[in-house]
Every structure is written in C-alpha cells, then in structure tokens.
C-alpha cells in the first residue's frame, strides 16, 4: 500500500523549469501577481526567478513535497495540504510567524509584505492550469511529472550523443 502511494506521488505534476531556457525575464512573476492579486508586483508572485550572476537563471515555485515541511512547521495548522497535493493557507488561522517560510527547502513560501500572511503557489487550482507556464515566452516552464521531465532529459542526452557520433563519422569520412 505504501509503495503505491509513493509511485503516485512521483507521477504528480509539478512546475519544472529548464535552466537552459530560463533567461531571468521575470514574466512569470508578473503573470502570477496579476493572476493571484490582480496587481503588477513581483513581490506578490508565487514563483520566483533566481539569478546568480553571470549565467544562472532559474524560476522556482512549490515542489509539492511529500510530507511538506511547511505544513509540519505551522503551529496553528494554517498551512494545509489538499488532496491534489497543493498547499492552502487558511488566512484566518495564519499568525504570520514565518516558520513555514523558514522550513521550506526552496524558499518559495513567503509572507505578504503588507499583510504579513503566508502565501504560496496553488498551481492556479481554480483555473486548472498554472498561468506562469501558459505565458512563459521561452517554454522554460512546464507543468509535467518528474518522470516526464526525466524522460525528456534522457532524449536530449541521446540526441546530443548521436549528433556527436554523426559529426565524428562525417569528419572521418
């Protein structure tokens, strides 16, 4: 039984960012703050672009962890995990202590700077499709399972090996 649960979890869909394609444009942040709060303010986004100079750019959001640390850390049970594995914040219960923020391994749980209430990506559950993924201009963001992401990486690796082999053959000829 336990085994079955784990397998389902590995097949859950999450937002995956391709580090080669992500260029740090932050459009996902704008789209998110607009979708969730109807304002343009990247500090209210649930997805975060991390730029480490000079080359590294990557957007990060909730990873739908098994046994989420944010849920465990919350002293008031304001941070809850729903059956679709997304996290929901009960704003009535949240006291703004920030323990969920400290607990999150990826730093994607935040406190709203104005209200002090915790917020996190809910995968646009009311719309049915994460809007950041929909509008990422470079298709760096994908809403897929980890399995699928892995398969695509394998394909890419094989392609580049084949290409190298082919060009080596051509050079030899």
């Amino acid at each position: 039984m336990a085994l079955k649960t784990k397998m389902t979890e590995r097949l859950k869909k999450i937002i995956v960012c391709n580090v080669d394609k992500c260029n740090g444009c932050q459009i996902c942040e704008f789209v998110c703050s607009f979708t969730k709060e109807k304002v343009f303010n990247s500090r209210k986004s649930r997805i975060f672009v991390v730029r480490i100079e000079p080359f590294l750019n990557l957007a990060l959001t909730c990873k739908k962890c098994d046994d989420p640390p944010c849920v465990r850390a919350c002293p008031t049970e304001a941070v809850q995990r729903l059956s679709d594995e997304t996290i929901k914040i009960d704003e009535e219960k949240c006291i703004g202590c920030g323990w969920c923020v400290e607990a999150c391994e990826f730093g994607v749980m935040r406190l709203n700077l104005e209200t002090g209430i915790a917020f996190v990506c809910d995968y646009c559950r009311d719309i049915g499709e994460p809007q950041c993924v929909k509008y990422c201009p470079k298709d760096a963001l994908r809403y897929i399972t980890i399995e699928q992401a892995a398969r695509e990486l394998s394909k890419k690796a094989v392609k580049s090996i084949v290409q190298e082999l082919l060009s080596a053959c051509i050079t030899t000829i």
Partner: peptide, 19 residues
C-alpha cells in the same frame, strides 16, 4: 556565448553573455 539572458519583462532576450 555561454548564456543568453533577458532584461526584466522582456520576451525577446538578446543579451549574449560571452565567456
């Protein structure tokens, strides 16, 4: 060119960073 990066809110991304 090691990486092509974008300015904030740009869907073009033209900045070719050389190494």
């Amino acid at each position: 060119v090691r990486k092509i990066i974008a300015c904030t809110n740009c869907a073009i991304a033209c900045d070719h960073v050389n190494e």
